[in-house]
Design a protein around this nucleic acid. Structure first.
Lengths: 391, 391
DNA sequence: TTTGTGTGTTTGAACGTTCAAAACACCGAA
DNA sequence: TTCGGTGTTTTGAACGTTCAAACACACAAA
């Protein structure tokens, strides 16, 4: 039988010990940490030295209990389809943790308890136990029950993904339509006049926006454009994550048709893989000489494809920073955002749409679209415009 | 100017209010929550009713301060190469949060502060502030500075990934060698006699183990086997995430050689993509009629390939549960694990190695290896054996 | 009746910090 | 000399909970 927990206060010193060591009172040490300008410089030095000496760090529980500030933000993990997880979850989380850390905040991960999986209950629990100062929601839909719930609760929150017009505009999102519009411009610059789009799960707002941005820009430039799956077809569901067969079939059909597209934009990197397959199945080649292809998300997959896949890169660090900034604005000053923030993406050009050899520069690029800038991996990047949308 | 924070204690009731409502004392309510068997059933009912009535939940900070238990586990996010992130991070985290939640624990995510990125400092901060009861480390190497550090600190911890013989054996890991051995058996059953392996970053212990398991089982079965990149070649680095060119080149060279393998196992799903490319570049076909290919991790990518990729699925939920179990054993009872736990993987057979049409069952499978069992998606799964390794 | 024994409940104290207010030291002006 | 003012430091109380010990009571044994 084990000898029990017996927490031995591993080296953890208290504020009282620091005070004694520095020859001051409790509160002076507290002030030295929380409001140094109130402490005489000479005293501050002594206290700081004692703190370092003893390796003191305030007990977060005691701090929270007294002050009310938890210094912790809750991230509600979206319950996504295990077959089609959000491809940027991990990267976004890292960015979020870093952005929060820069503001002295930690990130608490939570999820609706399986198998029921009621997000509202999970939120209630966390808030009732006062474990967080605010919440970060992700993969938010236009009419999202989670948004309505947290708004009703009155908890500070922000969302990655825009909310509907009737709801609080605490969101940060990328410009999905501008991203695919930039893709269209890129393809147009390369000389493509007939272009296709492969989407999936068009009921998701970001997917719908990508499709819409594609079609709008193509129309504006006078290009011939077709988006798959065609609206109203069962393909919309079938082209989803479960089986990619129908998507490939649809793309192949288009490639066999009279108006064969010379380029295809995909709503995700995985969908681009279906395009690759379809192109090859039709005996065509992916890339400049054949059918140009682009993806979305810029996952590691892009570099492992042959040719490497041109894709839309999301500014994850900027998104995370904006979210934390807006959230802490509410927590600290009660500053409720009145409008969402829309961030620009970056198009990373690789062999699938650009040039056979990766690393070649843009040749004489004086066109209408934004000028290219060389990205980290020798590929060319063209940013889409940033806007701060009004609520 | 905003009107200030003014935290209005949103609906949060205290234990005192519950006590008053139930006509008992503070401590009885506390007992009702923490040691119900000490409370008379009749009283318990009254207290429970009051708790529900008022929507009471104990303040976690107050609880932690007094009892010492934080009810929170820290997860140290590995600082991986952004070009080659751990492909199961997101899924593992979800499983970890669920497993922790089932035990009433939350998960706090933290990372070394960029740009320096010293894990030890990040750990010290978290522990000194007493924000967690224990730590979960991931992507652990044999001689890992983080392990040495937490062991020195005396904090309860576990690791996903085995530790070296001289170190505490608080690990949970998958049987990497058994996983690739199962792959070899699977390929042998299909009739393959000459097989290849494509690895990368062989300095990582799990990658080394996959390679070793592959070679050992091939030798045992008397198969002709070649593992890429060949030891001592610069390809070991070049075949990594950065550019997949060299990997493709090496595989192609092997396919052109006199002893052309009829099957290829890859150390990850992304590497399998390189194999696909090489096979096709040589004018061959991936799948039963041509070159069989297998991957590792069973990422969503597998289903989007044509043919769909046979891959090794990791028991993420079991891993997370084992980690939480071992960690809480230390936290609650001081039960220090004396040996690591090795978990079995599952081989998900799809078209790239099995049969042209996905969904077909294993035909008369009375061979030497473990019997097949049908997995969720109509593919066939064969488990590798589980062992509990001795420290 | 007294004494013990166990069960259920209450009371006082403590966890480590910050808030609120009071105390102190010092300065220059009245 | 007194007074107010300012800057710095200290003191008492509080945050909401659980620990440790005390208490009340019923019942059995002495």
């Amino acid at each position: 039988m084990p000898e029990g927990p017996q927490r031995p206060r591993r080296g953890a010193s208290t504020i009282e010990e620091v005070a004694r060591a520095a020859g001051v009172s409790r509160q002076t040490v507290s002030n030295a940490l929380n409001a140094p300008q109130r402490v005489r410089p000479e005293t501050l030095d002594r206290v700081t030295a004692a703190i370092r000496e003893l390796g003191y760090q305030p007990d977060q529980s005691a701090r929270s209990l007294r002050s009310g500030a938890r210094r912790t933000l809750g991230y509600l993990a979206p319950v996504d389809d295990p077959l089609d997880p959000n491809p940027l979850m991990a990267g976004f989380l890292e960015a979020l943790v870093d952005a929060a850390g820069a503001e002295g905040q930690r990130v608490l991960l939570f999820r609706p308890a399986p198998p029921a999986g009621d997000p509202a209950a999970a939120i209630d629990e966390l808030v009732a136990a006062r474990q967080v100062d605010g919440l970060v929601l992700a993969d938010v839909l236009a009419e999202d029950a989670r948004i309505a719930h947290v708004a009703r609760l009155g908890v500070p929150f922000v969302s990655f993904g825009r909310t509907g017009p009737g709801q609080p505009q605490h969101w940060v999102d990328i410009a999905n339509d501008a991203a695919t519009a930039a893709v269209v411009r890129h393809l147009a610059e390369l000389g493509h006049r007939r272009i296709g789009y492969l989407g999936a799960a068009e009921d998701l707002p970001w997917m719908a926006a990508r499709r819409a941005g594609f079609l709008a820009e193509a129309r504006r430039l006078g290009l011939s454009a077709v988006a798959l799956p065609a609206p109203g077809t069962a393909g919309a569901a079938a082209a989803g994550p479960g089986g990619s067969g129908p998507a490939v079939t649809a793309v192949r059909a288009l490639l066999r048709g009279p108006e064969r597209p010379t380029a295809f934009a995909a709503g995700s990197d995985l969908l681009a893989l279906d395009v690759y397959e379809a192109v090859r199945a039709e005996g065509l080649v992916v890339g400049p000489g054949g059918v140009a292809v682009t993806g979305f998300h810029d996952t590691p997959l892009c570099r492992h494809l042959h040719p490497a896949l041109t894709s839309v890169r999301l500014p994850l660090r900027a998104i995370a920073a904006a979210l934390v900034d807006r959230l802490l604005g509410q927590v600290r000053d009660g500053a409720v955002p009145s409008a969402g923030a829309e961030l620009a993406t970056e198009l990373v050009v690789r062999g699938s749409s650009g040039w056979p050899l990766p690393g070649r520069q843009l040749a004489g690029d004086g066109g209408a679209a934004a000028g290219g800038q060389v990205a980290a991996d020798g590929a060319t990047a063209a940013g889409s415009q940033a806007t701060a949308g009004a609520g």
